[in-house]
Amino acid sequence: MLELTSVFLFMLFGGMAVGCALSMIVQRNPLYSAISLVGVFVSLACLYVTLAAPFIAAVQVIVYAGAIMVLVVFVIMLLNVETEVRRPLRLRYLIPVAAGLSFVLIAQVFFMLFFVGPVSSAPSNVGLTASIGAGLFTEYILPFEITSVLILMAIVGAMTLARRAADIPLAARSADSSGAAGSPFTDPINDSRISGSRPGLTEIVGREMAARAIERLESRTGRGQGEET
């Protein structure tokens, strides 16, 4: 019975993941793609739970679904990205290469399906918070610290990009474009023409990205130390 349940769960969430992934690349509207991708992330998080990795599952939902994709959706809504136009394929010569590569992949999948053994399902505490914290702060402290430096670089990069974008006066940009009233760049309530110092929504996006990264850096440091002591 339990065996059957786990097979059912795998089929359910695996099917959901593949279905959402397919829908993601089939959809032409980026927002539809984004929501499908959120579906993939959530079903992968459920799969992680069945793999006895609850911590990673939670972080998957928080980081991917809750942070990265929210930013993506926010940017899509902000830029008001229109539906993609289908164009004739370029790089036509790549089609045989793709066919060959997909054949290799299918062969690999068959190899895996027939020659790789089952998951050892001994109950363990490997996926729990404490063991992950311990691993992250002892054996893998160097990659962890390097990641924090990377995140710092990302903060600086995002700030730089956002600041340069904010130098262009928003009011001037939207005033000369024809559809000024419907333009998503100006918040009609918080228009900079009304009050000089109010930040526009685009500026907030930049800050958000940076602060997201700060949060991740800080909370990771905090949580990890808690587990270590």
Binding site: I35, V38, V42, P54, F55, A57, A58, V59, V61, I62, A65, G66, A67, V70, V73, F74, M77, L128, T129
Partner: peptide, 22 residues
């Protein structure tokens, strides 16, 4: 009762934003 209850709460809170955005 599970090991990551607090993270679960935070994760669900962050998913709730989608409802409002959409």
């Amino acid at each position: 009762q599970f090991d990551i209850a607090l993270l679960y709460v935070l994760g669900m809170t962050s998913v709730g934003v989608y409802g409002i955005m959409l």
